[in-house]
Amino acid sequence: MSGRTIATGLVVSALVATLAALLLPVQLFGETASAASSAPSFDDDGGGTVNTRYGPLTALDRDFVRKVRLAGLWEMPAGRQAQERGTTAAVRTAGNHLVAGHTELDRLAVNAGRALNIPLPNQPNDDQQSWLSQMNAAQGKDFAPVFAELLRRAHGKVFALIALVRDQTENTMVRALATRTNAVVLDHITVLENTGQVDFDTLYSS
Rank of each mutant, 00 (worst) to 15 (best):
M1A: 15
G3S: 05
R4Q: 15
R4W: 10
T5A: 14
T5I: 08
A7Y: 11
L10C: 10
V12Q: 09
L15D: 05
L15Y: 05
A17M: 11
A17K: 07
A21Y: 06
L23D: 11
L24S: 11
V26A: 08
V26G: 09
L28A: 11
L28W: 12
S34F: 08
S37E: 04
S37P: 00
S38M: 09
S38F: 02
S38H: 08
A39P: 09
P40I: 06
S41Y: 01
F42R: 04
D45K: 08
D45F: 07
G48T: 06
P56M: 06
L57Q: 00
L57C: 04
T58S: 14
A59K: 08
L60A: 11
L60Q: 12
R62P: 01
D63L: 03
F64R: 01
V65P: 00
K67L: 08
L70S: 14
G72Q: 04
W74R: 09
E75M: 04
G79M: 07
R80P: 02
R80K: 13
R80W: 03
R80C: 02
Q81D: 12
A82Y: 05
Q83I: 08
E84M: 13
E84T: 13
G86A: 09
G86H: 03
T87W: 06
A90I: 03
R92L: 08
T93K: 07
G95V: 09
N96K: 14
N96C: 06
H97V: 15
L98W: 04
L98C: 09
H102S: 04
E104K: 13
L105G: 03
D106C: 00
L108A: 11
L108H: 08
A115M: 14
A115N: 12
N117K: 12
I118W: 01
P119D: 04
P121S: 12
N122W: 10
P124T: 11
N125C: 07
N125R: 09
D126A: 15
D127G: 11
Q128G: 07
Q129S: 15
W131M: 14
L132V: 01
L132E: 01
Q134L: 13
M135I: 09
A137P: 08
A137W: 01
G140N: 15
D142G: 14
D142A: 15
D142E: 15
F143K: 04
F147R: 07
E149N: 15
L150M: 09
L150C: 06
R152F: 14
R153W: 02
R153D: 07
V158T: 12
F159N: 06
F159K: 10
L161Y: 01
I162P: 05
R166N: 10
D167V: 05
Q168D: 10
E170K: 14
N171H: 06
T172D: 11
V174I: 10
V174N: 03
A178P: 02
A178G: 00
T179L: 02
R180K: 14
T181V: 00
V184G: 04
L186M: 11
D187Q: 12
T190L: 13
V191L: 11
V191H: 07
L192F: 07
E193P: 00
E193Q: 11
N194Y: 05
Q197K: 10
D199L: 11
